[in-house]
Simulated scan of single mutants.
Amino acid sequence: MKHTYTITGMTCNGCKASVEKALKGIPEVKNASVDLEASEATVEMSERISINILQKALSDKYTITEKNIFNVRHTSKAEEIPIAIGSELRQLFPLFLIFGYITIASVLLNRNPWDINSFMLDFMGLFYVVFSFFKLLDIKGFPVSFRMYDPLAKVVPVYAWIYPFIEVELGLLFLLRFEIEIALIVTLVILGITTIGVTRVLLDKKTIQCACLGTALKLPMTKATFIENSIMIVMAIIMLVNLN
């Protein structure tokens, strides 16, 4: 029987070779082949292997999730969809949790009296500070993942290295209410560029790791990433309009 899996965290041919070797090392695995561009692994096995066993065989750098099953027992779409959705939601839970905390903190900071403009400034400030923190946890790994989809980072590699520090500075500018207009314009530029890259990945239906929370937390590139950037862009536009 053959199973196809999605693997996030692979960035080069070395990663591909490492994943193939790890999977082939499992006794029940007859053969394993990895497609780096598609972030997929096709595993031929003598008997069904749980996803936990496959994950344990891999380095912590990689996350493996089941994509499809090709064997004599046909699985209906009704059976496959809940598994895929459940897996995706579990992977994105840290992102939703962080967004929730940032939103609650921003509301509490501006609840009495309520000020929507201050709420948006605090939200954007906390967003940048918190997200930059996770990127800086693996400052060496983040640029590699970021260059996989950000158009500017692909052309100017140094941009991927300084991006987390740009986020720190923007976060502080919003929280300190200093040079807000400049911070808003920079936000529109950098998130606009990133959103173009994210949109391309989603339209091409590629499965790669999202670097929004760095590489410490392994998140797949999904519509949630697009929505996250869009929220920040909309807030920046509203704030610029209000300032003028």
Rank of each mutant, 00 (worst) to 15 (best):
P143R: 04
V144S: 13
S145L: 10
F146C: 08
F146E: 01
M148R: 15
M148G: 07
Y149E: 01
L152E: 04
A153W: 00
A153K: 00
K154L: 10
V155E: 10
P157T: 06
P157Y: 07
V158W: 15
A160T: 02
W161E: 12
W161R: 14
I162H: 05
F165C: 08
F165S: 09
I166W: 06
E167K: 04
G171I: 00
G171Y: 02
L172F: 15
L173F: 14
R177L: 11
E181L: 13
I182M: 11
A183S: 12
A183Q: 01
I185H: 05
I185F: 12
T187R: 01
L188G: 05
V189Y: 13
V189H: 13
G192M: 02
I193F: 12
T194S: 15
T199M: 13
R200N: 14
L202D: 01
L202N: 04
L203E: 03
L203I: 13
D204L: 12
D204Q: 14
D204R: 14
K206C: 06
K206I: 04
T207E: 11
Q209S: 11
C210R: 00
C210L: 08
C210Q: 09
C210D: 11
A211I: 03
A211H: 02
C212A: 08
A216L: 14
L217V: 15
L219I: 14
P220C: 10
T222Y: 09
T222W: 11
T225F: 11
I227R: 07
S230L: 15
M232R: 05
